[in-house]
Every structure is written in structure tokens, then in C-alpha cells.
């Protein structure tokens, strides 16, 4: 039961408290670039979640059974980025061949995430910072992906409001978007400390 509880805590805290976009600033590029419309925000969120989980499922065994056992821990960055890039290409080809409908929905977003820092960041953090085991790593990646999607969806709603409002010339476009992101990040800030006390 305790193991299950710890998994739930990992999942909820990576969605709300430790949101990668809004508190760690990883994956800002797609967050700002693809959040203009609701449907593209959802598509991007699903694609990122999917790639994060698969990338973690592949990089965790590589780190623990190949790099660590051969004393090659310092190769982590190079190996991970190449593995993730190859994996994304492979997923895209596999989807195109076997599940064309899913490829149509997610395909355009997949190449965008090849060099996304959130995907590499979560793969590295699972091993270096949190030192999770395999199941915990998968759950954490899932939570981070869902948190990313939540942030994108909320933000796309906010951006549509901004477009209709009058803003000073210098603040038009990106500056206003960033200030809106600041408010949404402030809202997520309120989750701090909730999850730890939820199961007491």
C-alpha cells in the first residue's frame, strides 16, 4: 500500500507542484509556440507525454544496465540525446506504417520534440536528481507529460483572451504572452505543499 501511495504522490506532485513548464522552465519553446489554439495544444501535450514515457522506458535501462555497469556514466548526455532523437524518428515511422490515424493526429508534433529540453530533462532528472526506480520513473514521466498538457491547455485559453485585448505597442506579442505565463505560473505556485500533506 505504501508503494502505491508513493506512486500517487509522485504522479500528483509532478503534475501540479513540480510542473516542468511553469516551475522548472523546461519545454518553454513548445509551450509558447504551439499554445495558440486549443486543439494543437492538446495534440502537442499528448505527443510530449507519449514521447516522455517511451523515452524514460528506454533511457532508464540504458543508464542502469549499460552505462553504469561499463563505468560510462559521463556519456549520459550524448547517449540520451541520440537515443531520444532516434526513438522519436522511429516512433514517427512506426505510427505512419501501422496506425495512420494516430500519425495524422500526432505526427506533426513528433519531430518538434526531438530536441525538446523537457524530454531530455525528465530522462536525466529521473536518474540523477530523484534516483527513482523503473516504475517510479515511468510514473514521474507520465505526470510530467500530463502537467505539460494541463499547462498548455490552460494557457491556450488565456492566450485567446489576450488576443482580444488592447496592449501597449512594445508589449504586443511575446512580452504579453510571457506576462500571462507569469500569472498562470503564480496560480500553480499555490499547489506547493498540498500534495505532501494530502495523505497524512
Amino acid at each position: 500500500m505504501d508503494a502505491f501511495k508513493s506512486l500517487v504522490i509522485i504522479l500528483l506532485s509532478s503534475v501540479f507542484v513540480d510542473n516542468y513548464v511553469l516551475t522548472r522552465f523546461l519545454g518553454i519553446c513548445p509551450f509558447l509556440g504551439v499554445s495558440k489554439k486549443l486543439d494543437s495544444a492538446v495534440g502537442m501535450g499528448v505527443a510530449v507525454t507519449f514521447v516522455m514515457v517511451v523515452a524514460t522506458a528506454v533511457t532508464w535501462p540504458i543508464q542502469h544496465y549499460i552505462l553504469n555497469s561499463m563505468n560510462l556514466g559521463y556519456m549520459q548526455t550524448i547517449v540520451f540525446i541520440l537515443v531520444i532523437a532516434a526513438l522519436v524518428q522511429f516512433i514517427e515511422m512506426a505510427l505512419k506504417k501501422f496506425i495512420p490515424s494516430l500519425h495524422k493526429a500526432l505526427g506533426v508534433y513528433l519531430p518538434l520534440i526531438t530536441t525538446n529540453c523537457a524530454v531530455l530533462g525528465v530522462a536525466i532528472n529521473n536518474i540523477n536528481e530523484h534516483q527513482y526506480n523503473f516504475i517510479q520513473s515511468i510514473i514521474n514521466s507520465l505526470g510530467v507529460g500530463l502537467g505539460f498538457m494541463l499547462a498548455m491547455v490552460l494557457f491556450s485559453g488565456m492566450r485567446q483572451k489576450i488576443q482580444e485585448s488592447e496592449i501597449p505597442e512594445s508589449f504586443k506579442g511575446l512580452p504579453a504572452t510571457l506576462i500571462a505565463a507569469s500569472f498562470i505560473s503564480l496560480a500553480f505556485f499555490g499547489f506547493g505543499g498540498i500534495i505532501e500533506n494530502l495523505f497524512k
Binding site: S170, P175, L178, F183, L186, F189
Partner: peptide, 16 residues
Amino acid sequence: APGGFLVYGILIAVVY
């Protein structure tokens, strides 16, 4: 974190 977004947004506007 929120302060980071705010300061960045304002600085981009100033440089513009």
C-alpha cells in the same frame, strides 16, 4: 518561477 516570466517579458518590451 512567476517572477522569471514577468521580468523576461518586461525586458523584451524594453529592448524592443
